[in-house]
């Protein structure tokens, strides 16, 4: 082989290599890593837990308000409720999570993005391969069934097939018919996770939440074991709940913070800034 030919053959692999390195990533941005929850916003709701009877700023309907009013926190002392996991649309409210990508070895196409959340060690899969959602008679889960797509650098996820969950963990239910849209927005080492809950059963408008995270370069997620025990001896079939009109705890929040009943009881109107003007002079006095 002469010199010229040798040169040609030498260039080909280089060209191929160049092509391979330069393939534009189908995933527009890498979200892999451990993301650490920032608790600057809505702290009581997110860590201590919401107060009973605080439905302010939530677009709930009257049916959900009654779910909240008749809910008894003692429900979660039942052994079969103790290890119930936070659904994927409520998990962003607190704690860290890990995200990682799964690629097809041959094509290097992005198949899925996986998430592991600290709380109850829940894991979910966001399918990125264009597969359809399951039929309506398929199993519903706390994580739901998720498919994702890239909108520029934003990962947008659609989730359905939920188990019943909660709008706020003080008794306000989110139904199993909800469809949730999420946006994962990364700016350098900051991540904003936006959750939009559409629930035709218990919400009159979509509920928007945004949560912030920082990439933890040395981040680790601790295990989260949960074992049910008998906490209270009670008749086997008893379900703790309040009969309508008998829950006295629900007024504590209004009274403690001096918030008018209508505002505390929530509804779409209470989400918007203009609602403040309605409250002038309407408040009860804090004790």
């Amino acid at each position: 082989m002469d010199t010229v030919h040798r040169t040609k053959f030498a260039i080909l692999p280089l060209l191929l290599l160049g092509t391979m390195v330069g393939v534009p990533a189908r995933a527009q941005i890498n979200l892999s890593g451990v993301w650490q929850n920032q608790l600057d916003e809505d702290f009581p709701d997110r860590l201590a837990g919401p107060e009973l009877g605080d439905y302010a700023g939530l677009p709930i309907n009257a049916a959900d308000r009654l779910r909240g009013e008749t809910w008894d926190a003692s429900l979660i002392t039942l052994p079969e409720y103790q290890c119930r996991v936070h659904p994927s649309d409520y998990a962003p409210s607190f704690a860290d999570f890990r995200m990682w990508e799964e690629y097809d070895r041959e094509t290097q196409n992005l198949v899925a993005i996986h998430m592991h959340h600290f709380a109850w060690a829940t894991e979910r899969t966001i399918w990125m391969d264009g597969r359809p959602h399951p039929p309506d008679y398929a199993l519903h889960t706390a994580m739901g069934f998720s498919t994702g797509k890239w909108e520029g650098d934003i990962l947008t996820v659609t989730t359905d097939h939920f188990k019943e969950g909660w709008v706020r963990r003080n008794g306000l239910a989110r139904s199993d018919r909800a469809v949730v849209t999420e946006h994962f927005i990364r700016h350098d080492n900051q991540l904003t996770w936006v959750t939009v809950v559409n629930d035709p059963v218990y919400l009159t408008e979509p509920l928007y939440r945004s949560r912030d995270y920082v990439l933890g370069l040395a981040g680790q997620i601790a295990p989260y074991p949960c074992e049910s025990v008998e906490e209270i001896i009670r008749p086997k079939e008893a379900i703790p709940h309040h009969l309508p009109g008998t829950n006295t705890f629900n007024k504590e929040y209004q009274e403690r913070h001096g918030i008018p009943v209508e505002a505390a009881m929530g509804g779409a109107e209470t989400m918007y800034p203009e609602y403040r003007s309605k409250l002038v002079g309407a408040g009860v006095q804090p004790k």
Partner: peptide, 26 residues
């Protein structure tokens, strides 16, 4: 774990279920 997986439940009408669904209905 929690209320999910393990034993599956085929209802008389409706979707395939597991413990969580039966608990909510109960």
């Amino acid at each position: 774990y929690g209320q999910e997986g393990g034993t599956l439940v085929i209802p008389g009408h409706g979707r395939l279920c597991d413990l969580g669904d039966v608990l909510n209905y109960r």
